[in-house]
Design a protein around this nucleic acid. Structure first.
Lengths: 233, 233
DNA sequence: TAGATTGTTAATCGATTAACAATC
DNA sequence: TAGATTGTTAATCGATTAACAATC
């Protein structure tokens, strides 16, 4: 026991200087590490080696060490990684404590479903408001989130320091909305419209979600597996 | 004009023998090709070269030709690709004409939102039913999709030849539901639960959607871009 | 100190890009 | 036939894995 405290007390001394360009493959694994470490933490585990984590996550131990080392020396030779320390570091990297402000544009089925979840708050993102063009929903509250007219979108973003715009509008409207919010200083767009949203402004981050593409990929895999089975017979 | 018809008439003669193992990177680009070609088709365009497509899609012409050649010779030297032909071939690969049957398990916000969309039918997937444990929704219809008790899930899948299970249940329930439907012959699972669903059965395809991970990735990118800006000042 | 396990360099593997011969 | 553009091979680039010295 005392060895754990003694050892963990030395964590974090090494200054954390993230490598200049961490590849997007690494970054996309960070939330998975975060999720897994959170589970381990809840189970009351204190430390873990890259080999143990490898078995749980189906990622090679080598890759785990490489990934984590992009951001600094989070572990300790002969000991492994202190779970709580590592979890906190990754939370910090992912900006979980940043308290970003978000608005959802498009109060359709998907927009409402997103508004209903705890997905945002759980990750340090506040759902401030929703916006739509439909006069029957403007002025109402959906799952405690107020719905305003798209006419007010730009001003609202400026006044409330909105960082993130969640786009659940028809794809025809996506570029109009994107230009309103980027001009109002929004830093990132989470785009659910079924299209590649490409912006001129390189300072605005776009994260595209393509649910339809994912479903199609699944269908392709099912079809291919079927054909393989039939051939093997 | 006549040259187009003459030339396009020769397409598809070469037998299509997909390469044994097409990489998942290629497969994940197929829906994007499909989407883009569909747009071009609607615009009335007849043919396109890999160079033109490259400019539209931000993929190198070389990669486009490599990608398409995994599945057969879809183009023609000196001419390019016949858009309609290529679109149909990719539709076929993706199983858009297969008429798969799907059920949605979990009639919560996200499940309802998915039930409401045209996402499934547009891609040749029929939403047959939804399943839940909540007695107040069992027996109702949500956007014209009937809701049944999870108790009937296994039998329903067997009787209606269900290919795809869409999981929008809490992650605690995911493995129970997955084992019910895989035993009932379901071929693929579209998993929205916030966890890595790993099955023993290698014949069942799992496609995980991690909305939360995507949001976190966006937050990371926003944070990193911000820090870079501050440093540059 | 001896054992364990990281951090990091070197080797391998796979995916992307470039080049060009084949051919429409 | 000449021009255009694919299909395909070879070169490059990047990401993953292996190995091991550093060190707790």
């Amino acid at each position: 026991m005392e060895s754990i405290d003694k050892v963990s007390g030395t964590f974090g001394k090494r200054p954390i200087e993230p490598k200049a360009n961490v590849s997007s493959a690494v970054i996309r694994r960070l939330p998975r590490y975060h999720r897994c470490l959170g589970d381990l933490l809840r189970d009351g585990k204190l430390r873990i080696s890259s080999a143990e984590l490898s078995a749980i996550m189906d990622i090679t131990a080598s890759q785990i060490r490489q990934d984590l080392n992009c951001f600094g020396g989070f572990g300790q030779q002969g000991y492994g990684y202190n779970i709580k320390f590592l979890y906190n570091k990754i939370s910090e990297l992912l900006g979980v404590n940043e308290s970003y402000n978000a608005v959802i544009i498009g109060a359709g089925k998907l927009g409402r479903a997103l508004a209903a979840t705890h997905m945002f708050e759980r990750r340090g993102v506040n759902r401030l408001a929703m916006f739509d063009v439909d006069p029957t929903v403007i002025g109402t509250r959906i799952y405690d989130v107020p719905v305003y007219s798209v006419d007010q979108l730009g001003d609202f973003c400026r006044e409330h320091n909105v960082h993130i715009g969640v786009l659940t509008v028809p794809k025809e409207a996506a570029y109009d909305v994107a230009s309103i919010i980027t001009e109002a200083g929004v830093k990132g767009i989470w785009n659910f419209a079924n299209m590649e949203l490409k912006l001129d402004n390189p300072d605005v981050i776009v994260e595209n979600i393509h649910l339809g593409d994912s479903l199609m990929t699944l269908c392709y895999e099912i079809k291919t597996a079927n054909e393989k089975r039939e051939k093997d017979e």
